[in-house]
Design a protein around this nucleic acid. Structure first.
Lengths: 200, 200
DNA sequence: TACCTTTTGAGAGTTACTATCAAAAGGTAG
DNA sequence: CTACCTTTTGATAGTAACTCTCAAAAGGTA
């Protein structure tokens, strides 16, 4: 259920921590599903996971982070850096997303889907997700700058990164309107459209 | 109830409300400037503005809204709708922003600047601002759809709107890095770049 | 003046989050 | 196994952003 945990569980301590973390998230998501995000208190989550509220906050700095702490971005960025340098940035990004999805186990993808759904439907979470998106964009801009041997603060590069992120957000909003939509497929289409020069 | 809708502040009541609202915002911004956003409590603001905390929350649903409730977007959208229908959406948007700035009094512009600075420097505010940005984009997409006689849910249109918003955000982040920058000039340059097809 | 509506403040309550600190559990050396 | 050190945990107390309710005050009207 909780997908990508540490690939090598070393000490007993590490394993227990991972289990606690997974338990908290699992019970949190269940409660959110059953009674809604804001109607669920941290105290309830802690009780369900059989830890103290203090411990909850040790594992997740905020209630939002139970939903938002997500490794998809990180994986995608890793994939991006592995793309051939000659590739157009937008094309490289599309490839990265495709690869990240292809390699992830199905239950991981299903969890991403649920987190996505939740994020889109709770305004509080959506705001923070957008913020994370923008941060990823800054990272993307840096990576693109490195690939093209230009300054990371280059206006053209940052504007491009901004446009990419904007398309991503627009896709998120479209997916929010239609919960049955395949977010990742839409994302690919949106980036393809951007690659084509945004024809109307 | 006095029948007709009143777009102008007529009675004493309306004027007092406007004054209270302005006082709260003014004292809040001063306190934020003096001691920082998060170090300032709603209680302090209420006391400075000589109202009760209850009254503060009647005027602004959250502490964040003191900073974020902003009429620039609304004005810009109005301007946008007044642009000739034949104009390219991005060009029309650039013109709208230019006009909105040209018509606003200098002190209004200065306040926008300060709000902008604050918004960029406080993560909490930034998140919410991004959200507002995206909402404006949805509005923009609708307007563009009307102009071109297409479906408001048209993928190409929403993707274009997303890209525009993304460029806007990227400009905001660049301005955050360099507080001396002229946000509006950067915004115009970014949109011009997008209009040109995002050449690297 | 009398009356009705809107606005306000006071008070109590909820919840996310922070800080501290002693107890418990995990891990290690003798 | 014992003694010891480090990490993790839970209890407690506190802060601050809200929310709700209700009666008093102020604005407006007949």
């Amino acid at each position: 259920m909780s997908g990508a945990d540490d690939p090598r569980p070393c000490g007993l301590r590490e394993r227990k921590k991972a289990r606690t973390r997974a338990a908290i998230r699992q019970h949190a998501l269940r409660l959110f599903r059953e009674q809604g995000y804001s109607a669920t208190t941290v105290e309830q989550i802690a009780e369900a996971a059989e830890v103290s509220p203090s411990t909850f906050f040790r594992y997740f700095p905020t209630k939002e982070d139970v939903v938002l702490q997500d490794d998809f971005d990180i994986i995608a960025v890793e994939k991006f850096e592995a793309q051939p340098a000659a590739m157009h940035p937008v094309a490289a990004l599309r490839a990265s997303i495709r690869e990240a999805l292809a390699e992830a186990p199905p239950d991981q993808i299903e969890q991403w889907r649920e987190l996505n759904r939740l994020t889109l439907s709770v305004p509080e979470l959506r705001s923070r997700a957008l913020d994370a998106f923008v941060e990823s964009a800054a990272l993307l801009a840096d990576v693109v700058a490195k690939r093209t041997g230009r300054n990371p603060t280059d206006f053209a590069i940052r504007t491009l990164a901004g446009a990419v992120v904007g398309v991503g957000m627009s896709v998120m909003m479209m997916a929010a309107d239609d919960p049955l939509a395949d977010v990742m497929a839409l994302m690919d289409a949106g980036l393809a459209h951007l690659e084509a020069g945004l024809p109307l």
